[in-house]
Structures are given as structure tokens and as C-alpha cells.
């Protein structure tokens, strides 16, 4: 597939909000050929040889961190992983000091996961290295949004005109926000479905439809993106019980079979089987959950490749608001 337009990304990838449809398509189209590299016997190309990338994870993550690390290694970059436990962060060092110390060791890129919304932009504005947001608080998780878009496009051939419903804990979900921005930019119709306690107030203003019942959402949707019920954020009493949540909002085989169309089912992982999604759906024929994981590596390779390509002066120009 040949991208019709090459829209540069600039220095960083903070979120999908504000990216143009052409920029998003450039990333997705660039990811296509990267899929094949992971199928090779020697899963490595030398394109980022000599680049140093730091994976700075202030929140626990397995899938995203490993996916980024595979992407980096398959592009021949040198990688260092730092997690908050066991780093000087626990000794009280500030984010900027941590980053500046890393910069002093001559790095090229930072991939960061952080619990505070806005942390990625905060860092990007203060260091010359490229910054990739791997999830910041409730703000965005752009590479997850991109891999969801790529997976939907793989299975439905396009994004434009599709009806995509995001089900579950939208309130705490950076994945939901990245999905909504990306899907709307590419011309999909977007809806959310969940208990009102787990939907942000005024979410309709983002241009999405709200369904209170998952049956109604399934009546409407071509694609369902089922979010994880974030158990660790559940102290606030947002749902009466997990069993009740499953009974009302759980995506079950019976509910899928009652839908008028063959609905594609995505889930960003990790899954709570038997809570937001039943096992026979997660492992069923309509599920593309493992395709999402495979696509995650390709999408992240594309993002790293596109961001790393610019010479420092180009990155600087991008920082000033121009295009690299």
C-alpha cells in the first residue's frame, strides 16, 4: 500500500488529538510493511542503528513495554528500560531531572508511561529528544489508538463510515480518548456505552453517541472496542459489583449472536475474563484481540521510524510549530 500523502509528525507523539487524518494514515500505511519484518527469520532491519531509546515506565505495564521494546530492537535501536520502582524516582527526583540526567548520557528518544495526565507533553516541551507517549494518566495512549485503527482497517478494509462503539470504563480510559480522536479524524461514527458513573460528563461534546444498554450498542455497531474495567481504580464505588457489571454490560456470546451484524470485537488488554468480556467471546471468531497485539509492534515501529528520521534541526523546527 502506498500512502497518497506523507504528512510529517513533528518531534513527538503525545496524542491523537490534533493529528490530521493524513498524519494518522501516514503512520498506519508505514506500519503495513513493518508487519512483515516480524515474520522474517532474522527479525531485524538496521534503520535505527545507533539510536538510543529509553523506555521510562512510571506505571506497571507488560504488553506496552514489551511491544515497544520489540519494536525498538527490530529496528536495531539500543534500548534501556527504567521502571519507577528501583529508580531514583522513588528517591524523590523530579520527572524533568530524571529526563535531563538521561539526556546527559546522550539519548535520542524517550518512550514514557506516566500516571499523570499531561506528563508526556510536559516532558516533550523540556527535552530535545523525541518523546512518545505510552500512556499518561487518563489523557491518551496514542499507539494503542493507532493499533486499534490498524486492526479495524485490516479486518474491515476501511475506517471511514464504520460504526465503532467503545464499551466500559470510558471515564478512566486513555485508550478510549485516543480511540475517539483517531476514529473521528478518519471519519468513523463513534459511540460509547457503559454505566453513567463510568462515562465522563459531557462526553457527547466530543461528537460521540451514548448508549446506556450494550444491547442497543450492538444493534448499532460494526465494531466493539471493549475496555478493561480498571479494578485498581475501582475504590470510588463506580459499579455495585463485578457480577452485576458483567450481567448488564458484559460482552457475551448470547449478546453478540443477537446483533444484526457480525460485530468485530477488540480489547486493549489485559482482560478481566467474565467481567467486561466473556471467555467464549475473547477466544471466539469475532475477536481480533491477538491481532491487536501483533499490530502493536508494527505500529510502534512505524512511529519510532517516522519520529527518528528527522535531523535535529528538523526536530527543532517541528518544536517551533513548523513541519519537519
Amino acid at each position: 500500500m502506498i500512502p497518497s500523502v506523507h504528512a510529517p509528525l513533528g518531534k513527538d507523539l503525545i496524542g491523537l488529538e490534533g493529528l490530521s487524518a493524513d498524519q494518522i494514515r501516514t503512520i498506519l500505511d508505514t506500519a503495513e510493511p513493518f508487519k512483515e519484518i516480524s515474520e522474517r527469520r532474522i527479525k531485524k532491519v538496521p534503520v535505527l542503528r545507533g539510536k538510543t531509546i529509553v523506555n521510562l515506565f512510571f506505571e506497571p505495564s507488560t504488553r506496552t513495554r514489551v511491544s515497544f521494546e520489540f519494536a525498538e530492537k527490530r529496528l536495531s535501536a539500543d534500548t534501556v528500560n527504567i521502571s519507577s520502582s528501583g529508580s531514583s524516582v522513588v528517591k524523590g527526583e523530579t520527572l524533568v531531572d530524571t529526563a535531563r540526567n538521561l539526556e546527559a548520557m546522550k539519548i535520542d528518544m524517550v518512550v514514557m508511561r506516566h500516571g499523570a495526565s499531561g506528563a508526556a507533553r510536559f516532558l516533550a516541551e523540556r527535552i530535545p529528544s523525541n518523546v512518545v507517549n505510552a500512556g499518561d494518566g487518563r489523557h491518551e495512549h496514542p499507539t494503542q489508538g493507532l493499533l486499534d485503527l490498524l486492526t479495524i482497517r485490516d479486518h474491515r478494509g476501511k475506517i471511514e463510515g464504520l460504526r465503532v462503539c467503545i464499551v466500559g470504563d470510558v471515564l478512566h480510559s486513555r485508550v478510549a480518548r485516543s480511540n475517539i480522536f483517531g476514529l473521528l479524524a478518519l471519519g468513523a461514527e463513534v459511540a460509547v456505552c457503559g454505566p453513567r458513573t463510568l462515562l465522563p460528563v459531557g462526553i457527547e461534546q466530543m461528537g460521540v453517541t451514548v448508549f446506556d444498554r450494550v444491547e442497543a450498542a450492538l444493534e448499532w455497531a460494526d465494531v466493539l472496542n471493549v475496555l478493561r474495567l480498571q479494578l485498581e481504580r475501582m475504590e470510588g464505588g463506580f459499579v455495585p459489583s463485578l457480577r452485576e457489571y458483567n450481567r448488564i454490560y458484559g460482552v457475551s456470546r448470547a449478546r453478540l449472536e443477537a446483533a444484526p451484524r457480525e460485530v468485530l470485537v477488540l480489547h486493549p488488554g489485559p482482560m478481566n475474563r467474565g467481567v467486561e468480556i466473556d471467555s467464549d467471546v475473547a477466544d471466539g471468531p469475532q475477536s481480533v484481540i491477538l491481532n491487536q497485539v501483533t499490530n502493536g509492534v508494527a505500529v510502534r515501529m512505524a512511529v519510532l521510524y517516522l519520529l527518528a528520521g528527522g535531523a535535529p534541526d528538523k526536530a527543532e523546527a517541528a518544536k517551533q510549530g513548523g513541519e519537519a
Binding site: 502506498i2 500512502p3 506523507h6 510529517p8 501516514t26 500505511d29 508505514t30 503495513e32 510493511p33 513493518f34 512483515e36 519484518i37 532491519v45 538496521p46 534503520v47 535505527l48 529496528l75 521510524y305 517516522l306 527518528a308 528520521g309 528527522g310 535531523a311 528538523k314 519537519a324
Partner: peptide
């Protein structure tokens, strides 16, 4: 052969998003 990812001028000319398949 698509040699895009094996080029030595990424830093000079920037990424080429048109990567063909080998």
C-alpha cells in the same frame, strides 16, 4: 528487494514513508 530500511541517509533526508515489500 525494498532497501528503504537499509539506507544510510535516514538522518539526512528523513524517513521515507513509502516502504515497499521485499
Amino acid at each position: 528487494l525494498d532497501i528503504t530500511l537499509y539506507r544510510d541517509d535516514l538522518a539526512e533526508v528523513g524517513p521515507r514513508p513509502v516502504i515497499g515489500e521485499t
